[in-house]
Amino acid sequence: MAEDTTTSLPVALVVDDEKEVADAYALRLRGICDVETVYNGPSALEVLSEKTVDLMLLDRHMPGMSGDEVLEELNNRDYDGRVVMVTAIDPGFDVLDMPFDDYLCKPVDREDIREVIGHQSTILGYKLLGEYFSAESKRQVITAEVDAERRADHDEYQRIATHARQLEQRARRLIDESPDLLAEFDAVDREGR
């Protein structure tokens, strides 16, 4: 998969031990996400340590490492994406207080899956946008205070700048309105006078 497509679409990871089911989800998400598909928990964790994943469609009941166990491992890492659990039953609960962000019940139909993923993309997009704005403000403060030559060696500055750039990229791929919001943010003159 070419690199430039990954920057324009949210990155989704589909995890299900049944290949037929996982592949079906993956094809349903084509066009709205850049999809990675794996068939067990350990492979999912491997993908997560290699690339930034925005959304995860996680089958709950897998032999070996279950979806819940994957989730537990995610809590130990700094995964900041969203998790949609795919379960066999529908108890009809809201997800408040649940260890995942949303859930879908098998069999999952095409529209539901796209809608849930779209919804979670938007939520994550706005969250990352907020983080970007705060990182970017900090970066600009340092820009104003430290001259360009010294900034190159300024670790804190470099760290914030890289982080802000990543957040901006992710926010852009997650929400459609992000260019407008980013333009508005940039238009504010923070240096005064």
């Binding site: 709950r60 066999a88 039953i89 108890p91 649940m98 260890p99």
Partner: peptide
């Protein structure tokens, strides 16, 4: 399934669903 059975109080069903 525990999560979707009315013979179990909602508080337990909810916790069981969260615990998987």
């Amino acid at each position: 399934p525990v999560g979707a059975n009315d013979s179990v109080p909602t508080s337990i069903r909810r916790a069981a669903f969260a615990d998987g």
